[in-house]
Amino acid sequence: MNPMNYVILAAILFSIGAAAVLLRRNAIVAFMGVELMLNAANLALVAFSRIHGELDGQIMAFFVMVVAAAEVVVGLAIIIAVFRARQTISLDEPAELKG
């Protein structure tokens, strides 16, 4: 079977992640959507790595995981800071900046 199918799977996961960012009010869930998008990119990288017969794609996916972990730490820290201030993690609620 052609590994290209995995790339198509990656595209689907990417879209679902994006949809989660658009649809979910809970900041943590939306953020999980972003993580899913990053994972989808990783899947595509690994699949292409297999297709091209070289390791570079895997290395990249490895880096992305590290970066994503760091990003998660910062993102959750921000979410906690917001929660402490407002007692909510809804993305809709803080909307004083607009216009």
Binding site: A18, V21, L22, L23, R25, A30, L91, D92, A95, E96, L97, K98, G99
Partner: peptide, 17 residues
């Protein structure tokens, strides 16, 4: 036009997407 800037981060993401 400024109404597009609703203050809702989800709308912003929607604009981008």
């Amino acid at each position: 036009s400024r109404k597009l800037q609703t203050g809702q981060v989800r709308s912003y993401a929607a604009t981008m997407l």
